[in-house]
């Protein structure tokens, strides 16, 4: 059975100008690869949706975390290829601070999915992490898959 998801316009992908290279967490020749993805999302239903959709797309979910602190603690052990993060994680540090700390450990491709996609958030995201994609909730699943593939491959799609 197929469903039509709410047809919200996606965010203009800020990552289009992302230059390829190891410094930005580039995964060479990975656009069609099975990726090991870490999800940081405090809304269980959304996390489950992301997990299911990404598994359907052929990826492996390393684990799901509802807090940034737990994700940081498990990051080295799980060794994901990519981190998919919400920004507002309720209590504790938010998704942007979480990603900064993950990148301090290892350059890893990042994708954000959030209801907080206003200008202030974009500015902060850009200042903290450079050009990373921020998709608006509710996200279209095909856009999510395309974005993940493009970011992992380090090029536009």
């Amino acid at each position: 059975m197929s469903l039509n998801f709410p047809a919200f316009e996606p965010t203009i992908p800020a990552w289009r100008a992302l230059p390829p290279g190891p410094g930005f967490g580039h995964i060479p020749h990975a656009s069609k690869a099975r990726l090991r993805i870490m999800i940081v999302e405090d809304e269980s239903m959304v996390a489950w949706l992301l997990q299911t959709a990404l598994e359907d797309a052929g990826h492996e979910i390393a684990d799901i975390f509802s807090t940034g602190e737990d994700a940081i603690e498990a990051f080295a052990r799980l060794a994901p290829d990519l981190a998919l993060l919400d920004i507002n994680l309720g209590a504790g540090i938010d998704g942007i601070d979480t990603a900064v700390r993950l990148r301090a450990m290892r350059a890893i491709p990042l994708v954000f999915v959030s209801a907080y996609a206003d200008e202030d958030t974009r500015r902060r995201l850009s200042e903290c992490l450079g050009k990373v994609p921020l998709l608006r909730k509710p996200v279209r699943l095909n856009l999510l898959e395309e974005t993940i593939a493009a970011v992992a491959a380090g090029h536009d799609h």
Binding site: M45, V46, A53, A115, K137, V139, L141
Partner: peptide, 11 residues
């Protein structure tokens, strides 16, 4: 956020 949850429930 709620729309995202509803999307998840639907899917």
């Amino acid at each position: 956020n709620m729309l995202a949850v509803v999307s998840g429930i639907a899917y």
